[in-house]
Design a binder for these strands. Sequence first.
DNA 1: ACCTGAACACCGTTCAAGT
DNA 2: ACCTGAACACCGTTCAAGT
Lengths: 225, 225
Amino acid sequence: MREHTLPDESDTANRRRAGRPRSVILDHELIARAALKLLAEGGYAAFTMSALARSLSVSPSALYNHVNSKQELMQWIQELVMAGVDSSVFATLPLNEALFEWAQTYRDVFAEHAPLIPLIAVLPVSESPRTLEMYEEVAGGFVRAGHDQAAIVPAIVALESFIFGSALDATAPLDIFDPGQYTGKLPQFEGALEAQRATGKNSADAAFLTGLRAIIAGLLSTAAG
Amino acid sequence: MREHTLPDESDTANRRRAGRPRSVILDHELIARAALKLLAEGGYAAFTMSALARSLSVSPSALYNHVNSKQELMQWIQELVMAGVDSSVFATLPLNEALFEWAQTYRDVFAEHAPLIPLIAVLPVSESPRTLEMYEEVAGGFVRAGHDQAAIVPAIVALESFIFGSALDATAPLDIFDPGQYTGKLPQFEGALEAQRATGKNSADAAFLTGLRAIIAGLLSTAAG
DNA sequence: ACCTGAACACCGTTCAAGT
DNA sequence: ACCTGAACACCGTTCAAGT
């Protein structure tokens, strides 16, 4: 997919550099990117060490010269993915707007890499400097807005929970709510479903925006000052 | 664990029933319960068909006489787990209180079975009558409260996203936010972390309750009437 | 330093053979 | 009808052997 055919190109390129025959073919970044590509294209099921090795034109065991385990690879990917989340907005926008922008990039990034959610949501943050930096910026935003100090971490966690949950939901099949054989037996729910469909809006997106506005408003009104 | 040693007991019991030597040893419910127990005790990694077979004193291949695939088994489990969610409150309490109670049982049930979240969050609902019933009751609550018809499904999805995300978060290691080697470099975040710790409250629970109040308040204030 | 290929202990699932 | 045991095509990971 896309315009690059990484494995072959880099292989050749590396071999061509005369005088540096052993220059790096595989590195940290290259491996993580290839893994991410695999994940994006085929989901978690497609992300095997064998498939990764194949996509890099190398044997599976060769990968273990560069990474200690699949789990460690996951952490590299976390780092890579978190780079896509824009938390710079906290320096320039008022808290409520900054939260709104930040949450959207955060959710979009993870909706693209849904298989990572259950893993990253539970991954310790200590090995991911980018994630920590993000927390620092978000926390700074709350502090400057005069938010109650003890309520900041719960607020961030609540937002993140909503974001991860929404990213998960964004990958659900579109017909996830189809009542199937039970059609006609759920008047209230089916009515609501129909009304929502009539708006023509994507259900997952509508839910995310509605919920995001609600939770931000709620958090800032109850615990500010 | 618990008081039952299911496999042996049912085995013996079944053999004893004279005249019905082939009466069911394994059934739907028994298998699903054993699987759920495995999941609760050892997480998703412990949930293998072999381990399940062992816990039922049966060979792995025997399971396939009762279930077509591990995926189908997951759907049985979904059904079993959803039974733990109490949505009867919508018939008796005002919407905001009902949502509050419902969301808590929902989150607690899934926090106990976290490995199911990524799977169930994305599982079509059409094969799970209990899940559909739940939606019917929740939707009914919104309707009776005079909520805008087209906003009901997004509201439910937003709440569910928050609930799933929070359940996922509830299973994260307690020290997930430990900055590790970066300690001292994140003043705002570490300050907030310290203030939260000083409250003595469980961070995940505090976040869930704060967020839940916020999102319910937000949803009911913006889109009611 | 980095690769290969064989090997190990697993997976989920199928299927012939038994009762 | 329901079970067993062998088998298949996979996993992630290790390790001796090569260059």
